[in-house]
Structures are given as C-alpha cells and as structure tokens.
Design a protein around this nucleic acid. Structure first.
Length: 559
DNA sequence: GCGATCAGGT
DNA sequence: CACACCTGATCGC
C-alpha cells in the first residue's frame, strides 16, 4: 500500500495521489489511477470547499481515470476541475498560487503504467529538474526503452528523482511470471473446465478493484462469451471492455461479487445466484488471481495452484517484480529514488538502502576504487554504483542490464551453449555460484570471487555492448491511447505469443514492442568468450559508452 | 449523522 | 503468499 505523502521534494506545490493534510493547499493535483489507496482525501469536504472558490486548481489524470472517477457520484464535484491528458503528450501547465499570484510553469507527460485501466506515471519537467512519479506500475523488462518521452534524442533523459512503486522491491520477489504466462495458464484451466459441459462454469474470484479487466477481455474473446460482472456503469465509454462483460447471468464465466461470496462458493453457488434452467446443479470452480513470485534462480513453477477440490489460485500481478523494477531503474539511472511502498517485513530504511545501488552516482573525481577485481575504473559519465547483493556475480556497477541480456540468452532455446553466465564464469576462472550457494542463502551469501586479471565487470561491459545491439529499428510508438491499458488479446491479433520474446509477450499494454535483439550464434559466442577470457578487447568500443542507457535502435535512427 | 481510524476478513 | 477493499466497532465532531 502506498505510503507516499503526496508531495515531491522538487515540486512541493503539487500533490500526487494524496489529497488530505498539507495537500489541501496544492496548486495542482495528479491522480495516477483509480485505486482507493491513491485517492485519500479526494472526496473530502475541505477540498470540495476549496474547489468552489478556485478557478485555477486542476486535477490531472488520464481520460480513463477521469471516466472511472466520475462514475462514482461522490467525486462528481471534481467534474469541472479535471484535465484529462493523452498519454505521452507533453503538456505545459501553470502552477498558480491563488493568494499571491505567484506562478511556476512545468511540463507534465503521462506515461502508461500497466497497473490498471487508466493508470499512468507522471513525468514532470521544470526548473527543479526532471522527476518521475511512477504511481503503481507493472512494466516488463525493456519497457522503459520503448517509452519515447523518457528520451531526448537517443539518450535517456537526465532524471533527478524517481518516486517509485516499490511494492515488490525486495529480492524475495525476484521474478513474477509475465502477464502473458499468467493469462495463458488461466486460459488453459478455463478451457479444460468449460469444455466438459455447459453446466461447467468458472468463477473468477477478483477483488473489488480495477485491474482485472484485461483478464475479462482476453477470456471473453478466447471463449466467445462475455464475463458476468456486477456493473457496467464505469465502462460506458470503453467499448473494448464493454464488449466482453455483461450483467446477464447466463454465461459460463463469472466475475460477479457478493459480500458473502466465499460462503456462497462453499455451498456450490455463484455470488449472483445463477443456476441452470433445468435444475441441474452447476459445476463451479473458483479461480483466485493472486501474486506468485519466484527467487532469482528458481525455476518458475506452475502459474496455477490447486487450493481445494474446486478452487485454484492463479498468478496475477498488478506490480512489477524486483527484477523488473531493477531493469527499469538501471535504465533510467536517476540520482534519487524515493520508495512509496515499504514491503511487509521491511523498514523504510531497508528499502532506501536496497535502492541506493540503483541511484546514479554523481562523481566529482574521475577515479573510483573498487574493493574487488580490477580496482580502478575511469568514467566521465555518471555511473551506477551497483553492489547489490542480488548482483553478486559482478562487483561492478552497470552490470544489471548485462545480466539480464545474458539471462535472456539463457532462456533462449536456440542457444546451444547452455548457460552463458556459467560458461563465461568458467572461462574467466570462476565457479558456478550454485555449487556453493544455498537457494535460501543466495541473497546474503558472499560469492567468493577470485581476483582475476580481468574484471568480470569490464569483460561483461564489452560483452554487453555486443549482446544488446539490435539489428532493426524499434517499433513505432503509438499515440492517443484509448484506455491507457491495452489487452493483449484485443490487439488486432498480432503474433502468436510463442513467437515473441519474454519481454514482448509480457508487455501487453500500450507500449509498442521492440524487435528482439539477436543473440549471437554458437561460433560467435565461443570466439567471444575465449577472447574475453584472454583479456582481449573484443569490440573496438569505447568503454565509456553508456550502452545500457542508449535507446535500442536509437542512434542509427535518430542521429 | 458523518467521517476518520483501526481490526479483521477475503 | 502481501493487493485492495469491505465490514463493523469505536471515537470525535
């Protein structure tokens, strides 16, 4: 749950996702999405009074959020004060102090957040620098590079601070199966059940919150039916969702709710009380979407877990995993990161400490001393000082992206070499980590990395440059998003998901895909690794090149 | 009577 | 399996 107090250090005149206390005095308001824990104080009588006498105070949000908000009459008084913005369209706003007339300008841009319908992140650019408030988000690895407005030319914008959804920023939540993997698991379960007879029905045990809609639209589409829900009111202006939901009970897929619905289920009844017309009892299974996570090196197990004779849990996440957040942050390299959520069992200090390695180090001196490996590196550009325990394979900073590329290769069945990380480690004289690190201890264990003539970090930064280079230009950014949330199945049926890379398949809201980078072939890899092991400069690239921050396909296109 | 807050539930 | 929200009790205005 968000514990963000509503204001950012750089722009204290605006309030985001909090509307009580000091936020009552804000010059402008921002609502990232329509979940109650981000709407505290939004229907408060004090705020209502303030708006009555104000001409300049506005609430900025997406069109979908505006629609969802105003579908609840309690927020009706906002109607004339909401400014809905298109995604990825920078908009200049004036922040006016109505008492003094004092005025400050800023440019705000909404970015897709993939958390629920209408959810966005806010990019704010102004005199106090560029800051990103993420709201709640689920982005897949690689998604940040596809968001055009995070770049200027082929470079990532210089971001002062990120106000981060840190819900799963904890190595414990290292990986969460992709949206597509979860969806496909659910699809399989539903198919198996519904195909038995017309008396077989499924109940999707969803919480009272926006965010399951893409599940409904995908299942509705797949099974040529509509999903039974309690109300359609909020979706009046969202034809893509509306097409797949109904208030008619006569359907095999239900997501209806009732205060005592769990009790209903135990009595083999649907929350809506639907029954078969000829008196035959319905055969009901319940599927409860909930988050499942896996450790860094854990083989992902099933995304569906049976929890009873007729009940299942299905993997489903509204938030990015630890690995996804790291990927996001290592791409943006902000100077400051402020967590807005403290994961259970941790303190604010814990999270801040865990986030430090993801912050860009602003260096005055050009020389940095490292405790292990090659001890000296020079770098003009700012760098990540990444010594996070989860990345103990390497002692050096900007390796997070490299590892991901390598892990992607690992997962690529067409790479016949098996595990490139292990291969590389054995070539440079290190033993594979699992040999002496217990699964449970892996995050705290110190990997006894032998000192080596070559810094693995250095080696890998060379390897990385090659591994990530893209052959093709990136997909075009689509503008003017309807829902701020796109259902993968309702995309004019693109490619078979099995043909897509992990990052593409899980990126099923409105962030266009990037053409897959081409993993090097076997021969290429062997040659490369041997040369790396020998300490050679494999590519004639400048080590200072911030390849990890260069938009894939960017330079060749834009420069 | 209304709102805020907390505990306890799913 | 930890998200988001509901209900009910209690307190203060």
């Amino acid at each position: 749950m968000s514990s963000f107090a509503g204001r950012m250090k750089e722009y204290p005149y605006i309030s985001l996702d909090r509307f009580d206390r000091e936020n009552l005095h804000a010059r402008a308001y921002f609502l990232s999405h329509c979940h109650k824990d981000h709407m505290k104080g939004l229907k408060g009588p004090l705020l209502k009074r303030k708006l009555k006498f104000s001409l300049t105070v506005k609430l900025y949000c997406s069109f979908v959020t505006k629609e969802l908000l105003l579908s609840n009459p309690k927020y009706g008084f906002w109607a004339d004060h909401i400014v809905a913005l298109e995604l990825e369209s920078p908009t200049q706003i004036s922040l006016i102090d109505e008492a003094s007339g004092e005025k400050e300008e800023a440019v705000v841009t909404l970015l897709p957040a993939g958390h629920c319908p209408g959810s966005v992140m806010f990019l704010i650019e102004g005199a106090q620098g560029t800051v990103l408030y993420t709201g709640d988000f689920r982005l897949a690895e690689g998604d940040a590079s596809r968001i055009e407005v995070l770049h200027s030319g082929s470079r990532v914008k210089d971001i002062q601070s990120v106000y981060l959804d840190s819900t799963f920023y904890d190595p414990r939540f290292y990986q969460i199966p992709s949206r597509e993997a979860c969806l496909s698991g659910i699809r399989g379960l539903v198919l198996d059940w519904l195909s038995r007879s017309t008396y077989h029905v499924v109940w999707l045990n969803c919480k009272a919150a926006y965010g399951y809609e893409y599940l409904f639209t995908n299942l509705g589409e797949e099974f040529h039916t509509q999903v039974h829900v309690n109300s359609l009111d909020m979706f009046k202006k969202m034809p893509e969702i509306l097409a797949h939901v109904t208030t008619e009970r006569a359907t095999q897929i239900h997501a209806c709710r009732h205060p005592k619905d769990e009790e209903f289920m135990r009595g083999n009844r649907l929350p809506c009380g639907s029954f078969a017309s000829d008196g035959t009892p319905l055969k009901i299974i319940s599927i409860k979407p909930s988050t499942m996570w896996f450790g860094e090196r854990t083989r992902k197990t099933n995304v569906i877990v049976k929890t009873g004779s007729s009940s299942y849990r299905a993997c489903f996440s509204f938030h990015s995993s630890y690995a996804e957040i790291r990927d996001f942050l290592s791409y943006l390299q902000p100077i400051n990161i402020y967590p807005s959520v403290v994961p259970l069992g941790r303190t604010h200090a814990d999270v801040t400490e865990l986030l430090k390695p993801m912050c860009r180090e602003v260096i005055s001196s050009a020389v940095i001393y490292r405790p292990l490996g090659t001890l000296k590196r020079t770098r003009q550009e700012p760098t990540c000082h990444d010594v996070d325990c989860a990345d103990w394979l390497f002692e050096s900073g900007d390796m997070a992206p490299v590892r991901k590329r390598l892990m992607k290769l690992e997962a690529t069945p067409t790479t016949p070499l098996g595990d490139p990380v292990h291969l590389l480690l054995s070539l440079i004289g290190c033993q594979a980590p699992e040999a002496f690190v217990d699964e449970d201890e892996k995050h705290s264990a110190q990997f006894p990395l032998p000192l080596n003539p070559i810094s693995p970090g250095h080696v890998l930064s060379q390897a990385k440059t090659m591994l990530i280079q893209d052959g093709e230009c990136q997909g075009e950014i689509l503008a003017g998003i309807d829902t701020g949330w796109k259902e993968s199945g309702s995309h004019a049926h693109q490619t078979d998901p099995s043909e897509l890379s992990e990052s593409q398949v899980s990126s099923d809201f409105e962030v266009p895909s990037t053409p897959e980078s081409h993993p090097p072939g076997t021969d290429e890899l062997i040659v490369l690794y041997k040369r790396l092991a020998a300490g050679e400069q494999v590519l004639g690239l400048n080590p200072e090149d911030r390849a990890c921050r260069t938009k894939p396909g960017g330079p060749s296109l834009q420069d």
